[in-house]
């Protein structure tokens, strides 16, 4: 299983991070930051990096300034 924010999806062999995000019906844009297992992943490699089973993806939306 892969956890995306508050939901879980089924892991499939060879799936990329982007595949998992699409499977989880989550959207991303300029104001989102993607973390996989507590590390930030740049958006331009989401479709290139495969994800491991039991990973946790966090899609973080920037809504405030610092």
């Amino acid at each position: 299983m892969i956890k995306i924010n508050e939901i879980s999806i089924k892991f499939k062999e060879g799936m990329t991070i982007l595949d998992a995000i699409i499977e989880g019906k989550k959207s991303i844009n300029q104001n989102t930051i993607i973390m996989v297992n507590n590390s930030i992943v740049e958006k331009d490699v989401l479709d290139k990096l495969q994800i491991d089973d039991n990973s946790e993806i966090k899609i973080l939306r920037i809504t405030d300034g610092g």
Binding site: N5, N31, I33, I40, L60, R61, I62, D64, G65
Partner: peptide, 18 residues
């Protein structure tokens, strides 16, 4: 699931920089 908690307020730069 907010960037301030998971990263810190610096996360804002990922939006303003673009």
């Amino acid at each position: 699931n907010h960037p301030f908690h998971n990263i810190g307020t610096l996360s804002t730069i990922e939006s303003t920089g673009e």
